[in-house]
Design a protein around this nucleic acid. Structure first.
Length: 503
RNA sequence: GCCCUCAUCGUCUAGGGGACCAGGACGUAAGCCUUUCAAGCUUAAAACCGGAGUUCGAAUCUCCGUGAGGGCACCA
């Protein structure tokens, strides 16, 4: 069997991280079995449509590396891939259902429906519809139609018995038909509801597998009944478990943008992950590892490496939250594995956004040294602030620049020796810096170890607690600027010395 | 209210009747290493929701509770 799996978002704005996971799992499944992955736009609710949403969703999918074989932009043999462009098809089949006794026209007005809802609710019935037009006499239907009364088409749900929904993740799920209502298939504006549209499209697009959110499981019996009524071969359904808020309260899909939950900044749109400096391969890794695991204990992987092992049947049915606490670590791991040039290219836009003019070559000189400490691309601007900022004054105090193993007097000696060395050395390269500065450091601390001095030197030269390694930083800065910074620091310390002496 | 789903360390997970005094990862703590940050390495604390069954044996199967989540639109 050829796998043809579709992902069908609604153009209501952006790609949600949960939707991205549904898409990614579908994509992995299709690729694993050598099938096709199809993108279809479900825009039958025109009220909720947001301009530009389709492009935005496609951009996020592409960023994540989820490509499609057929879709609204690339076309394909079963198009169009946008539902509103297929309206006549749905109308035709809705009427086929009516003519064959599987559905009926319902003329209830919104006011009538509202009354019904209230009356039924009083009896504890939340279905909202009492089936009053289900067996309406044909003459009367014709009469109302002749008067031009608007109507919807509703499915004639079996009143008794049971519908068994086969789900790839959960297995068989049984529903009592008596619990189900006569859902609307075709709205009075002539457009179909999701229920009708997806069945017709999946059939005519020869879809074999569907990944969709768990919220569809409760209407799945309707969908199964529809397949049966049409007499078409039904695709396999996989209902993805819901993603919860990190606090475990409520589902994440209700959130439309990033928010703070406890100590975590929770990102929800794929574009937010990009803005916050996460790599697409890290985001893929992050979402692929919840609700599914690679089978061994491998935590860091690329999608390509793990796709051959992927199966929708292995997806864990329990709802979960995304482990945001792992995200920075995962991203850092992927950054470490990156080629320096690729990393420099990835960092560049973030530096530019911070207002630094950079060229790739200058970046390449420092990127390898800072790679291991970078968790998010956005941090690069902070790390490299010392290099690119025009403002070279850091507000460091004597306390910042000394250490219990590095008292004031020897600190002054140490910084000035380093300055003199930088100024006068004939060769200014990594090895020379490393040798000389380490030696100075050892001579200047009470323990005879360079460590404490070098830690403070980092601060003196870069103004930062965390930075690329000191020697690399000094090299990247160049002699003139390094000397200038050391002089600055010496000024602070010397005035501290005078103050102490004056007392 | 009704229907449906789910339930292992704080979090993400492995586990499909004996290989489990439950394994991995993040985070946390301690130590090592080091250009005292970061990274890396080592160690530690930390879980089978509760109760009944089935079975020689249950984290694993069944039932009941409890808890959490989803659904009950002319939205998807």
């Amino acid at each position: 069997m050829t796998v043809r799996l579709r992902f069908a978002p609604s153009p209501t704005g952006y790609l949600h991280i949960g939707g991205a996971r549904t898409a990614l799992f579908g994509w992995m499944f299709a690729r694993r079995f050598g099938g096709q992955f199809i993108l279809r736009i479900e825009d039958t609710d025109q009220k909720r449509e947001v301009p530009g949403a389709v492009d935005n969703i496609m951009a996020s999918m592409r960023w994540l590396g989820i490509n499609w074989d057929e879709g609204p932009d690339v076309g394909g043999p079963y198009g169009p891939y946008v539902q509103t462009e297929r309206a006549p098809l749905y109308q035709e089949w809705a009427h086929w259902l009516v003519e064959n006794g599987y559905a009926y026209k319902c003329f209830a007005t919104p006011e009538e429906l509202e009354e019904m809802r209230v009356a039924l609710q009083a009896k504890g019935d939340m279905s909202g519809y009492d089936r009053r037009y289900r067996d309406y006499p044909a003459e009367k239907v014709a009469e109302l139609e002749a008067q031009g009364k608007p109507y919807v088409v509703r499915f004639k749900m079996p009143l008794t018995g049971v519908t068994v929904v086969e789900d790839m993740i959960r297995g068989a799920v049984t529903f009592e038909n008596s619990q189900l209502t006569d859902y609307v298939l075709l709205k009075s504006n002539g457009l179909p509801t999701y229920h009708l549209a997806h069945v017709i499209d999946d059939h005519f697009m020869k879809i074999s597998h569907i990944t969709r959110g768990d919220e569809w499981l409760s209407t799945a019996p309707l969908h199964f009944q529809l397949w049966q009524a049409f007499g078409w071969e039904r695709p396999y359904y996989a209902h993805m478990p819901v993603i919860l808020n990190p606090s475990g309260k409520g589902k994440l899909s209700k959130r439309t943008q990033s928010f703070v939950d406890g100590q975590w900044q929770v990102l929800v749109r794929v574009e937010e992950f990009e803005e916050q400096g996460y790599l697409p391969q890290a985001v893929d890794n992050f979402i692929a590892n919840v609700g599914w695991s690679s089978g061994d204990d491998q935590e860091i992987f690329t999608i390509d490496e793990v796709t051959p092992r992927f199966d929708l049947r292995d997806v864990n049915p329990s709802p979960t939250s995304l482990p945001y606490a792992k995200l920075d670590w995962i991203n850092g791991q992927h950054i470490q594995q990156m080629d320096p040039l690729d990393l420099a290219k990835a960092i560049k836009p973030f530096l530019e956004a911070a207002g630094y003019e950079v060229n790739i070559d200058a970046l390449l000189a420092v990127v390898p040294a800072m790679r291991v400490r970078l968790k998010r691309l956005t941090e690069a601007a902070d790390f490299l602030h010392f290099l690119f900022a025009d403002d070279e004054t850091f507000s460091l105090t004597a306390v910042d620049l000394t250490h219990k193993q590095l008292p004031l007097d020897t600190a002054v000696a140490g910084y000035s020796q380093v300055r003199d060395f930088v100024q006068s050395t004939p060769v200014y390269d990594l090895e020379t810096i490393s040798q000389r500065v380490t030696a100075i450091g050892e001579s200047v601390t009470t323990s005879g170890k360079a460590g404490p001095f070098l830690g403070k030197l980092r601060l003196a030269v870069t103004g930062q607690q965390v930075s690329p390694p000191v020697f690399e930083s000094m090299l990247a800065l160049g002699r003139t600027r390094t000397v200038a910074r050391l002089n600055q620091v010496l000024q602070v310390l010397e005035s501290e010395q005078q103050a102490a002496a004056g007392e």
